[in-house]
Computed example of a mutant assay.
Amino acid sequence: MSLRFDVDAVVLDIEGTTSATGFVVDVLYPYSRSRFGAVLSERSTDPDVVRAVSQVRDLLGEPDADAVRVEKALHEWLDADVKATPLKTLQGLIWSEGFARGDLVSHFYDDVVPVLRRWHGDGVRLHVYSSGSVAAQRAWFASSPDGDLLPLVSGLYDTENAGPKQEPDSYRRIAGSTGVEAGRLLFLSDRPGELDAARAAGWHAVGIRRPGEPYYEQGVGDHAQAGTFDEITISTSGSTT
């Protein structure tokens, strides 16, 4: 059964929604883990690295933490799957370099890219909201197996420029940034807590349930759900479809 929405914009989660969580965990996480030390030493004066290190120290409550302590914290957070902003920032820098060098190519489920191209062609504005940093998102969409998908995307949001993904205020910030009314926004995610937050902010929300993903068995609560993007039909206020 197709789900139909009359909205102006769709906001996309990445892991478990457009792309396999397993790829991130099995490919990207080890890649970043092996390079934390190098980025902390080789790019110690980079403003993004300086800011991330400062944030790590703040989170640890250790203002004098050295690079060894900072790297240890990054490994611990990665092991525990903590969505810490400085961890995501540094991962984004590392992954961006990896994508640029051709070491990495991102993953998208087969149903995703054709549907995104169709929605974009129909005038639907596409945005991304992920716990991964904006830099990581930009590299991810620019380095897909189908080429550079960034021209399809109008905006990128993460926990730094929008806020935590399970808080309604984060979705209100995104709505304000996009200029799209809450009731004209649709959020796609596999995590029920995120869907709850989007709905609390007045958005439409659909849970994407893909076999093998971490939240598949848990389900998406009382939200509408789809197994693939093909099951979702979007029309806009100015569309005749």
Rank of each mutant, 00 (worst) to 15 (best):
V180P: 05
T21D: 13
Q91T: 13
P211K: 15
A73T: 12
Y171V: 08
A80M: 15
V7W: 00
T178V: 01
P168V: 13
W77H: 06
R4V: 13
T240L: 05
R209H: 12
T240N: 00
A80H: 12
S19C: 14
D169V: 12
I208D: 02
L74F: 11
S106W: 12
P192Y: 07
G176N: 10
I94T: 13
R209L: 15
Y109H: 15
T85N: 06
S235W: 06
V128S: 09
Y215W: 15
E160K: 09
Q218H: 15
P86D: 02
S2Y: 08
L185Y: 08
V7H: 00
N161V: 08
W203G: 00
D110M: 02
G163Q: 12
L90K: 13
V68C: 01
L93N: 03
L152G: 01
V53K: 06
Q137A: 04
S2N: 08
H223E: 03
L195T: 00
G16K: 12
I234H: 03
A38R: 15
A175N: 03
W95P: 15
D158T: 12
V153K: 04
A197R: 10
F36D: 10
P63K: 02
R209Q: 07
G102K: 09
E181G: 03
R199D: 08
T85M: 03
T233N: 00
R125F: 01
T178P: 05
E194V: 11
M1W: 15
V68S: 02
R35T: 07
W77V: 11
R69K: 07
I14G: 12
S44F: 02
E213Y: 14
D46T: 13
G98F: 04
D122F: 00
I94A: 06
I234F: 05
E15M: 11
D148H: 14
S170C: 07
E160T: 14
A38D: 15
V39C: 10
V24I: 15
V220S: 10
R101C: 10
L126K: 03
V70F: 12
G212D: 08
E76K: 09
E62M: 06
L150M: 13
V56P: 11
R101F: 12
L156C: 11
V112C: 11
S34N: 06
L28C: 13
A136M: 01
F187H: 00
R43S: 13
P164K: 10
L74V: 11
A38S: 11
M1H: 14
S170E: 01
A162F: 06
